[in-house]
Design a protein around this nucleic acid. Structure first.
Lengths: 210, 210
DNA sequence: CTTACCTGGATAGCATGACTATCCAATGCG
DNA sequence: CGCATTGGATAGTCATGCTATCCAGGTAAG
């Protein structure tokens, strides 16, 4: 299919598709002539993934590009690729990881992870992300209790191991594994968020008698 | 305290504080003279809330302004105020709520909510948000099973009723109730997200034998 | 006093991110 | 044959969230 058909099938304007091609989010089509290239189903699928990450997950274009680059680097082993993709989805580095409050929160995070017996790399950016949230909660006068964190973590792990990770085809094509991981992280993450807000509304109505 | 002290105490630059004042995120200080105003602890607290929502939750300034406006409208009953704040936190309207796919997904959402016995207003934007995610998952060839959605929802409701809503001082000052709700939605929502990513990393390491 | 420094208020400018528009020469289909 | 389409390149746009500059009135240490 040509670019105009790819555009029609996906609903993405041609200039935007060209932009994604430039940014390396979408692989080049197969050149059939100097001014003609063919696109296929894989491009359409990739385009849908890009739009889902951008529009639902608000993942920056630059982050998507990093993930794609890891997929396309055939020399990278699958677990490294998945790790790269995963870390790319972390929020951009927080400003504070230096002060005393953050260090203390960071220690609470270490203790939590150790207590759960989780296997998380010491340099995972996720650790600082969580610590930063604890700092903010403290500053707002609503510190998170160990019990609450622990409970959230237990529930999270159950769902992750039962669904998110159980469904990843680790030994299939690399592209598919990353796709499944990213969809699990971003789209189901968002689904979780929305369900939480729905549950909050329902509980609020129940408590306040609508 | 004067603006320079507020700035020093919060770490937010003076021009940024002035910007928040202009946008109505922060109430005016008490004017003590034509060119002098006094700020207090409430301003500092509000500033910390704003920064947490912006930096951790990535909530747009315009959305924060809407929430503040609801708090400041003394005529608005508490449950209306909480509803307003809550809906303001929904993602900006999705583009598709018209086509056939979305309508079908929307019906699945209705069925889910009904099946759970949740009390959610028919016009809640959250319904469309969830439907939109289901549409994307379908398009990506990874449709969400009813079982998975149901399981996510059950777990979510347990945590929400046990923590998020249980801790809201519904009958205290209106400002505090909204603050608690918003923190519960945004900061704990983010904490959940980070815990999920930590759990995913740990599971991935376990499965791939690191 | 007085003089250097803050203030609050107003206006304008900037950086980033995600597009969108315009050109251009080379096709290629009818 | 001739005109719409294509790929590639370059530049412009729009929304956000600040940041910088001015200005005149006010404060406060010496």
């Amino acid at each position: 299919m040509r670019i105009s058909q790819l555009s029609a099938a996906s609903g993405v304007p041609i200039p935007t598709i060209k932009y994604y091609l430039r940014e390396g989010l979408l692989p080049q089509g197969e050149q059939t002539a100097a001014t003609r290239a063919e696109y296929d189903e894989a491009h359409l699928r990739r385009l849908r993934l890009i739009r889902a990450l951008l529009e639902v997950g608000r993942v920056p274009v630059a982050t998507i590009a990093k993930i794609i680059a890891a997929v396309e680097d055939e020399d990278m082993p699958v677990h490294t690729m998945l790790g790269t993709a995963h870390y790319a989805l972390a929020s951009p580095a927080e400003p504070s990881p230096g002060d005393a409050e953050h260090v203390r929160a960071r220690e609470r995070v270490e203790a939590l992870i150790a207590g759960l017996g989780w296997d998380v790399k010491p340099e995972a950016p996720t650790r600082d992300e969580l610590a930063e949230i604890l700092v903010r909660l403290d500053q707002l006068g609503m510190p998170a209790t160990d019990e609450r964190l622990r409970d959230y973590a237990d529930v999270t792990m159950r769902l992750v191991s039962e669904y998110d990770m159980a469904l990843i085809p680790f030994h299939g094509p690399r592209e598919t594994a990353v796709e499944t991981l990213v969809i699990g992280t971003v789209l189901y993450g968002k689904a979780f968020d929305v369900l939480r807000r729905l549950a909050q509304e329902s509980e609020s109505a129940r408590i306040l008698g609508t």
